[in-house]
Amino acid sequence: MTAVTPTRASSTPARVFSERNQGTTVQNLPLSHLSIEVGHFYMDDLENGEAPIRRQFERVKPWLDAAMATVVCGEEKPRISTCFLIDDYFQRWPDASEIMEKLLRLARESGVAIDYVARESSCARRLDGFGVAELVARRILEEPEPENSTGGRPPTAHTGWLSNGRPPREATVLNVMEAHDWEAASEYGKRNHSIFLDVELWKDRAEPGADEEEVLSQRLYSCPFLAAVWQLVRLGLLRKDGAPALEVTDWDGHWRDEWSQFPDIVKVNPQAKPFYAYRSLSIMPQHFLGIEHAVRTIIDHVLLDQPVVESLLLRAQDKKIILPSAVADRISHHFLEGGQ
């Protein structure tokens, strides 16, 4: 066995050459303090009658005012932007212009100003074809099994499912006389009792043996998965080559009928504060609670690019804005009471 114990040289000469080609440089985004999602509808709701839409916006309004009054903004003047996500991924008809006109009018009449409108389909695949959802899918890390994960396990979810623990197990009972052998589910991060959740992230519809490109083009992402993408986009955390994965386009004055020609995110209020924000709030009907629980579980398992996370933390620190390190803690919800 050989051993070497050197001492530190006292001085080193100055450098004359350096080469560092950073593959990706993270863009500094203009940021609001809070991004507020002002309601949510299934496409069916948007297609039918005006009264339910108006009613939801009217119920959003007081909570929107409350959120605006209590925004965390350090020593700066508050910057808040509002947004609305169109549910066009699972079904849509070529009446985008009609719906946009109706939606913006009803919101305005209810005192809810919408600054930005985005499409759920863009959270799967951008207008230019880039697979935004895969940015998240490939960064999902399954939660390690307690006391049994030593570092050799492949990190990504291959099955299209993600859970926060171990599912219940039912052993094969060989002898019918034996007691039924069953083991309860267990949440890995539980406190005393478990709330086990298993979330379907996507369904693969390609034939077995299809190449990766084909698999991805046929993949049907679940609603919570796209909503998780949406939250990460709003928080400025999801990037492609350092730029936001979904970028904002100014409204050009007229709406297309086809949702597929609709920009990824469109700025409908020219005076709006920045779309991306340190924190997000979503105000929506209570029946979305299950989906948002799944969204939180997904976001808890996404390992984001460190330089991006870092750039936001530094900005916040600079402006004396408190920014929680856990991304899910930057997201909040207000659920409108049901039965209306």
Partner: peptide, 10 residues
């Protein structure tokens, strides 16, 4: 990983 490039030196 999609969305980020590798660092490099020549």
């Amino acid at each position: 990983l999609p969305g980020v490039s590798a660092d490099w030196r020549r």
